[in-house]
Design a protein around this nucleic acid. Structure first.
Lengths: 179, 179, 179, 179
DNA sequence: AATGAATGAGCATTCATTCAT
DNA sequence: AATGAATGAATGCTCATTCAT
């Protein structure tokens, strides 16, 4: 699969709109208009709006996984790696453009019967749980992994609700206690 | 003001559909069809779909607050009260019909610029945080309140993603550690 | 038919709204709301919205005829009577609340196939033509009557379009020439 | 930009219906049905019903202006040109399909607060006043222009009310007197 | 005489998708 | 590969009118 400028442009536009406005609130017309392409061109590259959604989740998943992975690599000790992840999280949720976790947003918009979407979300969340598990394996604290994972979810969602710093700060304190 | 059967029937139908399918995926047409009433009858009782949403959130908020409150009242010690809340949570998220927290679902569907909805969600979440704070006041552990709140959110959302028991069980273990 | 406060209140409200907003742009709901009565009460007094319209035209016709008649009575000579009519017209079309002639407005809103409405409009316009004819009879200038009538219509409609004084002033000049 | 058959078909249908039934009494559904197209196709060409109205007025304005202009061109003297205009008017208002002046009909249907519509109407009427003014300039009788304009309006509106020939005949007699 | 509740038909508009070129 | 035009189905909402009390 070669790189394709038009396809990338569509994906980039759709991603931005899906995140800032939500999937259901974003129409095909807005996507093609802001991407500057014809409607039929979109359907040449993506067979349906749902296909666009799946790929959006794939892409967002890769990027998010990379970010978390990268954040840990500058550190050696498991504790420092964990802290680095929560520092990254801190940055993410305090951005002005923060509008919640892409995956948590989607599962509230899409019926849970939609297996493809649900699997994408699960896969992404599993990768985070695995990251924690691998970090904690050397110190035999794998059982902590899902606890930390829960805190990440808590931060994602409550930061969106309140638009304030206390949720991530509270979570960080909890991390200290738990480790 | 007598009870109004039609109005209640509309609200009940809308509530069920908003919860099981989501707000955006539920059309007025489906509501009136399943409620067995005429379209104009719906608009006689609710001035808009958004009004229906607001009242749905109000109602759900009252019920949820009552449930949590009631769960604590059978117990005396703060620790027992807290445990009772997480036991209730356990029951909720393991129901077959569980489809996430109504409030977390909505904030992912509705633009955050919608102040009325946002305020409803915040109010509901604040009431939970207050409940924890009041429970913990006698033992001077108010600082724990928001930590417990975060765990509740984590359980709500990750239970929806995974449809499994481990998130709530993990959270309960964390509660033990934290208290 | 005794006087009836409720009925009069409905008629007064409907008249005001029909004139300021137009017949089609005025809903039954707005009428009953602003009149402060129940919907079924309106239908107790008027069998349909069209009935309301007919009576509105009757009432407006009576008032308008009276006004023109009254304006002439302070004068003796036909010329002065005619001038008095155009002076009254001048006042009417320069009011801030002027929104065109009620009858001309209606015939553009209602299908011409509606005989009842059409007859009301014709009757009103005929009464004005007759007034001019009777004024001019003593001086054997009945043929002028319809010319003056045309000028009145011209003033009504062009004043509405332009919202300025020149149409009525121009018409007055024409009257001088013609007499 | 090629001619567009569908667009023209929509415009033609809308024009016919707006004229014969009025703007408010013509629904989008009737337009698409009689034009034989899908609803979304209409909205591909016209962004709203109001847009359809504006274009209808533009088109009608061009045609009307052309007709009046053309009527004068066969004549040389100002007097003959003026007479030619009233002869054309005579033809127009005596057509079986005559249902009033499109512009006068619209201003009674649409709120005067609608600037776009009001401007269209004024522009059309101004063009007629200008035509008279230019015709009369060579003989230094520009002051007559608005008098003649008023007579045209009077003919338009009273012909609609009565559906008879006397209004235009009366107006023609007045023109003779005035010139 | 008066009412609040209920209705069927209609409104203008937008949706994701497909077709012919 | 790319397009503009076309579509059927659905959207949320309003209309004038009627009914049961």
């Amino acid at each position: 699969m070669r790189t394709n400028a038009v396809r990338d442009q569509i994906m980039e536009t759709a991603s931005r709109l899906f995140y800032t406005q939500g999937y259901n609130n974003t129409g095909i017309n807005q996507i093609i208009e802001e991407a500057g392409i014809a409607k039929a061109s979109l359907y040449q590259h993506f067979s349906s709006k749902e296909e666009l959604l799946i790929e959006y989740l794939e892409l967002a998943g890769l990027r998010m996984t990379d970010m978390f992975q990268a954040a840990t690599e500058a550190h050696v000790s498991p504790a420092d790696k964990v802290i680095a992840i929560f520092d990254l999280l801190d940055q993410l949720v305090q951005r002005k453009t923060y509008n919640g976790c892409r995956f948590l947003n989607i599962i509230s918009e899409i019926s849970m019967e939609n297996e493809r979407v649900r699997d994408q979300v699960k896969a992404q969340k599993d990768s985070l749980r695995n990251l924690f598990a691998e970090i904690l394996k050397p110190v035999r604290k794998e059982s902590l992994a899902d606890e930390l994972y829960l805190l990440v979810e808590a931060v994602f969602i409550s930061s969106k609700i309140y638009g304030q710093a206390w949720p991530v700060e509270t979570a960080k304190r909890m991390v200290q206690k738990l480790m």
